[in-house]
Design a protein around this nucleic acid. Structure first.
Lengths: 203, 203
DNA sequence: CGTGTCCTTGACCGGATGGTCAAAAATGAA
DNA sequence: TTCATTTTTGACCATCCGGTCAAGGACACG
């Protein structure tokens, strides 16, 4: 029954199908609000079949969350000492916003989890995430010391990037309700956020 | 059992007790994750007793949401033509951040609802909220036309204030995990956000 | 074809959960 | 104190839901 690594073609395909369906359902209803029947329906499989590939509902959820963590942190990982600090930071903002556009379900999955106190992610946040953020905060502190960007708290700078970019995925319903039809929130946000961070960080 | 307006002292007190308990439970577990037993337990009442004061679980939830809408919009309502535009906007940011400190449960209640597509708030968002935001956006547009603050999209400016302030309540678990012990996120945010919006809006 | 393994599912189980109800307890006006 | 009204609750119900299981199919390989 140990099925950590898919062995056959069928296993690989069905596990992927299930995770895709689960992402859809969990991101829309949260862990508690999602049911195995919903996921099974979305995946086009029977409920016992789901439980043939995953030991429990929680296992599906955990697999999704941990599998997504890397994807989610990738844009931040890419930011490094390479080029112009201002360009690095604006690039990070752009990539993060692009993720809100391309992967809104993933964003809402995390949001659901964290709003409810991150019961299944505490460890990942305090180790992997904290380590990466602390590392990049140090990098930013260096840029500030060199006078290449303005002096702001690096941790809160990173928080502000998360808050502003993820807002457009997580609170999409609100953003669209307020803007009304015929406006493209994400495209508008791109320009707005570029301006915002340019002005904030100009030395 | 029409009980829209509490008639007796007992009714008033118990309805308040129930709503307070429900806020605690719903904000922590979401609508689906909360159970009547949890709410009853938190309220110190029996489950059938809850249903004596409210017709259903959903009715409790809806009562909470609509009752909170006004509180939630109050800080934005206060922003008007009165004083210096920059001071008005910074004041709004300060008040909104204060709400994240004072009413994190209310913030998470809304967040839970909106992340899941605002199934029980659509109307409120598209009417009451949109109207208020459009009105204030017009006000901001006026300030921009007068050259008293920088030229930024008013709607996205308001979104950015929401995103940045509510982030500290809604994603508290993440913020604290990353910052580690011994830092006070909300106090640090106050200075950071003041700087951010001052630089963004300087004419 | 034969056979052992992998995959799929209808039927079922037990506990949780939203909600009901009848009757008991508390309250309050006369 | 009386008694009608309001409040409270133990017991109960129907449904939902995560999970099990045994048996039936599909598949690969000789």
């Amino acid at each position: 029954m140990g099925m950590e690594k898919p062995r056959t073609r069928i296993q690989k395909k069905n596990r992927e199908t299930i995770l895709e369906a689960a992402l859809e359902v969990f991101s829309q209803h949260g862990f508690r609000g999602a049911t195995l029947d919903m996921i099974a329906g979305a995946a086009g499989l029977s409920k016992p079949n789901l439980l043939y590939y995953f030991p429990s509902k929680e296992a599906i959820h955990v697999t999704l969350l941990s599998g997504l963590m890397d994807t989610w942190l990738a844009p931040l990982r890419e930011m490094d000492t390479g080029g112009d600090p201002m360009e690095e930071l604006r690039g990070y903002v752009r990539r993060k916003l692009q993720m809100s556009r391309d992967f809104p379900r993933e964003s809402r999955l995390f949001a659901n989890e964290i709003v409810q106190g991150a019961p299944r992610m505490q460890e990942g946040l305090e180790t992997e995430l904290k380590a990466l953020v602390d590392e990049k905060a140090e990098l930013i502190r260096g840029w500030i010391a060199q006078g290449r960007i303005a002096d702001v708290d690096p941790h809160h700078l990173i928080f502000s990037i998360w808050a502003l970019t993820q807002h457009y995925a997580d609170f999409d319903a609100q953003v669209r309700a307020v803007l009304g039809e015929g406006r493209d929130p994400l495209t508008e946000a791109e320009g707005f956020l570029d301006t915002l961070f340019t002005r904030l960080l100009a030395p």
